[in-house]
Every structure is written in C-alpha cells, then in structure tokens.
Design a protein around this nucleic acid. Sequence first.
DNA 1: CGCGATTTGTGCACGCCTTCACAAGCGCTT
DNA 2: AAGCGCTTGTGAAGGCGTGCACAAATCGCG
Lengths: 248, 248
Amino acid sequence: MSQQRHGNTSGNAGGVPAFPDLPEATIARLPEYLRALHHLSEAGADTVSSEGLAAAAGVNSAKLRKDLSHLGSYGTRGVGYDVTLLIDQIEYILGLDQRRNVALVGLGNLGHALAGYAGFASRGFRIVALFDADHDQVGKRIHGLTVRHVGELGRAVVDEGITIGVIATPPTAAQGVADELVTAGVTSILNFAPCVLSVPAGVDVRKVDLAIELQILSFHEHRKASLTALPGGRTAEEDGENQEAVGS
Amino acid sequence: MSQQRHGNTSGNAGGVPAFPDLPEATIARLPEYLRALHHLSEAGADTVSSEGLAAAAGVNSAKLRKDLSHLGSYGTRGVGYDVTLLIDQIEYILGLDQRRNVALVGLGNLGHALAGYAGFASRGFRIVALFDADHDQVGKRIHGLTVRHVGELGRAVVDEGITIGVIATPPTAAQGVADELVTAGVTSILNFAPCVLSVPAGVDVRKVDLAIELQILSFHEHRKASLTALPGGRTAEEDGENQEAVGS
DNA sequence: CGCGATTTGTGCACGCCTTCACAAGCGCTT
DNA sequence: AAGCGCTTGTGAAGGCGTGCACAAATCGCG
Ligand SMILES: NC(=O)c1ccc[n+]([C@@H]2O[C@H](COP(=O)([O-])OP(=O)(O)OC[C@H]3O[C@@H](n4cnc5c(N)ncnc54)[C@H](O)[C@@H]3O)[C@@H](O)[C@H]2O)c1
Ligand SMILES: NC(=O)c1ccc[n+]([C@@H]2O[C@H](COP(=O)([O-])OP(=O)(O)OC[C@H]3O[C@@H](n4cnc5c(N)ncnc54)[C@H](O)[C@@H]3O)[C@@H](O)[C@H]2O)c1
C-alpha cells in the first residue's frame, strides 16, 4: 500500500532500494514490532518511545533501538518514533506492501483451520489456492475457495502469481509436495509436517513443529522439577523477560 | 518408559540426576535428533554415524557431535552412536519418559485441529482436558474428551496433574487464560495467540505465531526479488543447509 | 535565547554459538 | 599382536547477538 520510502543511511540514489542486509535475529523481531505498532496505532498513539514499544513487544529497549537503527534513523531524539511512519517502514522492509499470494496444500485437520484463519489476510497475506490429493476433499468449498487436486498445482502457481506455499500434509507426502512447489516456481515454503525438507538453494523453508515446542517445554519442566528437589525454590518475582518466541 | 540412566560425565552418585545445563540451542535441536532417530530405528538401524544422523536431522555433523557430547559420551569411535541407547538418553533428558498431561484452552478452528492431532500422543504428550468459554462449545465431545467450561480449569489442573497449558483463544482472552493457568499451577505455556504474555518468573512461555513465519518468508521474497533485479542471479546448486526451524 | 529533561543511536565488551580441523580411540583385518 | 581405516570428542577461532552506558540530538519552557 503506502510505498513511501525514506532516505537510506547509505545514500544510494538508484532505482533499486539498496537492501540493507539486516541480521536474521532482527528480521525475526520486526513482525513483533509491527504487531505492537498496529496495536498502538489503533489505540490512537502518534509516537512511541523505544521503552514503550519494547515493553509492548516484550523485548529489551536497547535491542529494539539497535534493530530499528538498522533500518535507518526514523526516530526523533527526545520524542520517540512516529508510529505510522515506522509501520510503513517495517511493512516496506518485510515486503508486505505488496500482497503475497499463498497456496495451501493438504486440507486435513490443520489445513482446514489454516484456510479459515483471518489473521493471515489482515497481515498482508492472501490464501488464493487450496490443494489436496484426496478426491473426497477435492471440490469442497472452504471459506470461499474450492479445493483443487494437487495435480493442478503447477499451473495454478504460475497463473496466480503464488510465491509462498504452505505444506499441511502428512510428513510422508511433504517432500513430494515441496518438490512440486519448487518446480512450479515457489521460492518460500512454510512446512507443518514434522520432517526435514530438501530444497535447492535459493528456496527458503521455515518449519513449524508443535511437538518440538512441547518437548522443549517438557525439558524445562523436567529441569525445574529436578531443581525444586534440590535447594531453596527461588522466589518468583519480576515478570516477563523469559518469553521464548519462534524464529530461527 | 525405559528409564535407564547411564554414567554421567561428572560422576555424581546421588539420587538427583545431576542435570547438565545444556545450551538452549542444543535443547531446541534435541527433538529433531529424536525424530530422526525414531525414523532410523523403525528402518532397522542399530547404529548411526554423526554424519548420517546430522543429514537426517538437517544439521552440520560437527554441531550434532558437540550437542550430543553435552549429554555425555554415548558414541563409539569408529562405529557411531547406538540408536536405541541415544533415543532413551534424549528422551530422559527431555523428560519424555514421564508422560506429560496437557490442557488445551480455546476450541475454535485451531483448537479443534490440535485436539485431534495424533502427533502429540505419539511423542509423549497427552491432552487430558479441553476448555472453552463459549457455552455452545461446552459439553461437546471431541476425540473422546468433553469440552469443559474454563471456570473449571483451576480444579482440573490440580486434580489431573496438568503441567502444560496450550492457549488457542483469541489474543484478547489470552492473558486472562494465562493468568488462570499460572494461578492453577501450570508452569509451561504454549501460546498460539498473537500477543505478548506476561507471566511470573519460573513459568516458561513459548509462542507460535504463524503470521510471523509468513512475514519472515515475505522478507526473504522481497530481498530475493530486489537481488535478481541486480547482478547475475546466482546459480542454484547444493541443496539443504538453508533450512530454518522454529526455536528461540 | 539558553537550559534542562528526555530519548535516540551506537561504541564496546562479553558470552554464546558455530565451524574447522585434528588427536584420540575403537574395531576389523591380516 | 600390530596396523589401518573410520568416527568420535574437543580445542580454538571467528562471527553473531545482546545489553550496558553514554554522547548526541531534540523539544519545551522560562
Ligand atoms: N492437526 C494438528 O494440530 C497438527 C499439529 C502439528 C502438526 N501437524 C502436522 O500437519 C500435517 C497435517 O496434519 P493434519 O492433522 O491436518 O493431518 P490430516 O491427515 O488430517 O490431513 C492431511 C491432509 O493431507 C492430504 N494429503 C495427503 N497426501 C497429500 C499429497 N501428496 N498432496 C496433497 N495433499 C495430500 C490428505 O488428503 C489430508 O487431507 C501433518 O504432517 C501433521 O503432522 C498437525
Ligand atoms: N486458525 C488458525 O489457523 C490460526 C493460525 C494462527 C494463529 N491462530 C490464533 O489462534 C487463536 C485461535 O484461533 P481460532 O482460529 O481457533 O479462533 P476461533 O475464534 O475459531 O476460536 C477461539 C475459541 O476460543 C474461545 N474463547 C474465547 N475466549 C475464551 C476464554 N476466555 N477462555 C476460553 N476460551 C475462550 C472461543 O469460544 C472460541 O471457541 C487466535 O488467537 C488466532 O489468532 C489461529
């Protein structure tokens, strides 16, 4: 949408946007900042301090300032950051100003939930195609979209400008689906199947594995249990700051 | 299950298991190794080399060896690792030998999918209670469990030995649910609502935000697009190694 | 116009994590 | 019993990320 782009620190006056190579850790936090900013914006805030935004996003304020400084200087000393300006800037960096078309493959339990999730559309993504291998699923309409057979995937990806594929099939089928997506030209994949995907260089894969999340929690439970058996249980004080979030 | 525990490097002959404080990064990878090991085990493998297991888990072999060395020496030089021995060891470290009871709060689209997911039970977790605030949901039976009203949460947590809570409510309700879980004694929370939770120290929160995953992919799409516009597009060769996984 | 209050942007130090490279150790073969 | 090939376990180096602490910059007010 708002495609305004403001002076880049390393003043490059060319057509290409001089892409700053942000640290991966920073990129993973930008969406959090963005969500917090939208929240603030809806609450009517014009500006926000690094302290305030950091609290809203659940991070250290120094970290937040360093992250934002990588995008350029969009804050005003003594005042803070302009909320809408920062939103535009982060959305530009994340490429959310151009709506991204997403294909969802595998419409079982999880796929159904994903297809009906409003939180994608509101954050710049549009699921434009649904695919399944099961002929009982094919033809069904889900939230305004018709489930197509996975064989049509290749053509649909090209025709509808799909750049992101979401895999919600059983793990045995995931690699095959990934191959088809890549062949069709998809260069980003979000994989919910608990397995490792092999893809050519240039294709990004992110994996979400809920069981792994639970297992990490289980480890900490185990650790906590074996600690309370030992010395004086520490008094619980101070909140937050022990928030773990996804991200590579 | 198999609770055998083998000589710890720092030989402590006490009742308490001498908990090694593993690096967080290592902990986050152990579940991946575990899945790969189970896969190998089903395929009939008795031993596996660090190279082989690393490939199956999608990581560097040196990293894998260092990770495993933190648990103690369970490999044999010139041979590799004993698959079942390593499985038992990792499961012990992760606390998966004692089945963990999980409460799921919020049975909308996502909650339904989670409730019916077999992948939890097969990996040591058991969803034992479902809660919702909506009276239309309360009373429904989902995969053998009856949805209860969220008001009963406190008692159920205590009665049924629940240590992990999963939040799948809208973000506005998430903090309230988290508070109730914590009050009831839950010390680990997996949060699907896109918001920051504030919890007392000693409580672990892990967050899964699918929109954030897509936004990170979007960034890389944006970056790739602005690169191909520039110099010679690099030739795509060599596969894997650009796999990003969740984990803090 | 000057000053103090406020807040950003960043230099710096520290710790964690990754990766290479290789010595030490194990088993198989002869 | 000795040698050889293979694989683990780890020392060391380098890179990345974090957080402190402070100088620089801006605003509001007298
Ligand atoms: N349900 C959950 O809450 C949950 C949680 C975490 C992970 N997962 C993972 O997500 C994936 C999907 O889970 P689910 O519970 O929805 O499984 P599911 O069995 O309900 O659905 C899988 C769907 O994929 C389709 N499918 C199978 N092979 C296909 C192919 N080659 N091409 C296209 N579609 C194909 C099937 O027809 C089915 O509709 C699994 O890998 C599962 O491990 C699910
Ligand atoms: N559906 C998805 O694929 C998806 C994907 C990513 C994130 N999420 C997030 O997961 C959460 C749930 O998503 P959904 O699509 O299932 O939403 P939903 O609206 O379908 O379901 C929410 C459920 O929570 C219940 N609820 C509301 N307040 C409650 C309370 N105080 N206590 C207990 N239960 C309460 C509601 O009755 C409803 O059944 C949301 O925060 C959403 O942003 C969903």
